[in-house]
Write a protein that binds this DNA or RNA. Structure first.
Length: 552
RNA sequence: UGCCCGGUGGUGUAAUUGGCAACACGUCUGACUCUGGAUCAGAAAAGUCCAGGUUCGAGCCCUGGCCGGGCAGCCA
């Protein structure tokens, strides 16, 4: 059962102990198909499906599609794809709130017959006025005391399309003086002559979320209805509906939604980022959407692990992206193939290496997992190394190449820098001249020589060209909030490098393949990548202690 | 100045239901290393929002404050 503890599991354990739901655990993930899922939804998905998994229960996928003006099949499809990609399975339990429209309507008729619901002719503005304020009670609608017959008649005619949008609503008759605004005769149905993505034009009245949700849970026999904190105040209303209807009652449990540093999480803001062109779509690799994270190179495992590690609680909190990044590194460190790629190439010529000779060197595919084997990497006289790996005037503690210094070429030889070639006009160094020591070949007796630094490289003759996209945080502040949140967008969140040289073995890499570029980070082949036009996304850098040293 | 919900190292969670505050990330040392990766060892960092109370004993219970968040859509 539950090894990981949180308050929700404690509640479930209690319910199991008292046999509250006959030993069942049945949850659901209920997204509205009005946008793409993000990492915050992933938390909820992992929570709900995880509970079902750990307690031998079930978890439904249910679309909360009660507002046809905002919902689309495109979103339905992306949501299904994302949940599946995260590794969860709803079996044959794919539901829609719209599946229950008829049942919901009947429930509403029942309440009306009981004198607990009424047709109201107040306009939206009037309803707001009558509702009162946070500190003052509201007042009864003048239509509140219509007869049951009249209410039934009006409600049916609402359904039949006799009235224009906004002209009438069906409201619950509860208490206009309740300190809980949700109880001040909430609207149950509104008139909306809009086509619904599933029910077409069968309906012109649509249930409000508050009216639909609890009953949907009830119909599906959900035991634990887990939602976010802002619905806490709505729970009394849901309880009231269920009690008046006398139907099965799920237990609602609220938890704090995920916030992440250096990003935004609201659907509204994410939509704005897309629409205003700050990113290239919902699946832009900088987006905290599940599709964005996937494109960036995140694995389902790493996201699930993240969800586990952040835990669940009722206090509002903001997790650090560093934890998310750690989860990815942790996962990919064990699984990703190591390869060599040079992002900003600097030519290096080994003067004493015979021209025309090519040697095949052994390179390990993953030092964490010897079962992943070794591969051959070709070396020849001319190589590319990283510009960062050479300094004409090396700072202290710099272990890489500089004039006169020695460094090991990963899996190959120790080389010594014996000269540089400059661009005559700019003085910029365009080429390094080196000599190598044939005795120091990797794997050979090692000749007792040791050097402080090892750098990656790629043979010029064999290198494959590639484009690499380097991503950093989308925002430059931890908490980009307020009206001017867009001002905090990091202008350098994407850097595109087009002259990159990667090792031969990458030539046939396919979208979603992930690699560790040694000493640089984890990279994922972009969806737009093709053979001959490779594109890699940097998912996350490696921990870089040198970068830290250099900063200080 | 209504109702509801929160408050534990920098961050996120935990504390056997009242028993000397733990884990992870992050930070900083050091070891090791043909990735300045990984790994390993260690350190700093909260005395649990405040004040009272109950108790042998309170992060957990009680009272009163303080601070933060949510709620006045025919959105979800």
């Amino acid at each position: 059962m539950p090894e990981r503890k949180n308050f929700i599991r404690e509640i479930i354990n209690d319910d199991l102990r008292t046999n509250k739901f006959g030993g069942r655990v049945h949850t659901r993930f209920p997204p509205e198909p009005n946008g793409y899922l993000h990492i915050g939804h992933a938390k909820s998905i992992c929570l709900n499906f995880g509970l079902a998994r750990d307690y031998n229960g079930l978890c439904n996928l249910r679309f909360d599609d009660t507002n046809p003006t905002k919902e689309e099949v495109e979103y339905v499809e992306s949501i299904e794809r994302d949940v599946r990609w995260l590794g969860f399975d709803w079996g044959d339990r794919l539901y829609y709130a719209s599946d229950y429209f008829e049942q919901l309507y009947e429930y509403a008729v029942q309440l009306t017959k009981k004198g607990k619901a009424y047709a109201c002719d107040l306009s939206p503005d009037e309803i707001r006025e009558y509702r009162g304020t946070l500190t003052e009670p509201g007042k009864d609608s003048p239509y509140r005391n219509r007869t049951v017959e009249e209410n039934l008649d009006l409600f049916e005619r609402m359904r039949n399309g006799e009235f224009p949008d906004g002209s009438r609503t069906l409201r619950a008759k509860i208490d206009m003086a309740s300190p809980n605004l949700n109880m001040r005769d909430p609207v149950m149905y509104r008139i909306l002559h809009a086509a619904h993505h599933r029910t077409g034009d069968r309906w012109c009245i649509y249930p409000m979320y508050d009216w639909a949700h609890g009953q949907c849970d009830s119909i599906e026999r959900i035991t634990h209805s887990i939602c976010t904190l802002e619905f806490t105040d709505h729970r009394p209303l849901y309880d009231w509906f269920l009690a008046e209807l006398g139907v099965y009652h799920s237990q609602q449990i609220e938890f704090a939604r995920l916030n992440l540093t250096y990003t935004v999480m609201s659907k509204r803001k994410l939509l704005q980022l897309v629409q205003e062109g700050y990113v290239n779509g919902w699946d832009d690799a900088r987006m905290p959407t599940i599709s964005g994270l996937r494109r960036r190179g995140y694995t389902p495992e790493s996201i699930r692990n993240f969800a586990d590690r952040i835990g669940v609680a009722r206090s509002e909190s903001t997790s650090e992206v560093a934890l998310l990044e750690d989860c990815l590194r942790d996962d990919l460190n064990k699984r990703a193939l190591r390869v060599m790629a040079v992002l900003r190439p600097l030519k290096l010529v080994i003067e004493n290496y015979p021209d025309g000779v090519v040697e095949e060197l052994d390179a390990v595919n993953n030092p964490e997992d010897s079962s992943m084997g070794v591969r051959k990497v070709p070396i020849s006289r001319v190589l590319y190394i990283e510009q960062d790996d050479f300094r004409e005037h090396p700072p202290k503690k710099y272990f890489r190449l500089s004039p006169g210094a020695e460094v090991r070429l990963r899996y190959a030889y120790i080389v010594k820098c014996v000269g540089v070639v400059r661009n005559e006009k700019t003085g910029e160094i365009t080429e390094l001249r080196c000599t190598y020591d044939p005795e120091t070949k990797s794997g050979s007796s090692q000749s007792g020589r040791r050097v402080k630094g090892t750098i990656h490289w790629v043979s010029a003759l064999h290198a494959v060209d590639a484009e690499v996209r380097l991503y950093s945080r989308l925002f430059s502040v931890e908490n980009p909030s307020g009206e001017n949140w867009r001002d905090f967008i990091n202008p350098d969140s994407l850097e595109v490098l087009r002259q990159c040289k990667v090792e031969q073995s990458l030539a046939t890499a396919k979208p979603q393949d992930r690699f560790q570029f040694e000493r640089l980070g984890y990279f994922c082949v972009d969806d737009d990548s093709r053979e001959g036009a490779l594109i890699f996304n940097r998912a996350v850098t490696l921990r870089d202690t040198w970068a830290k040293i250099e900063k200080s």
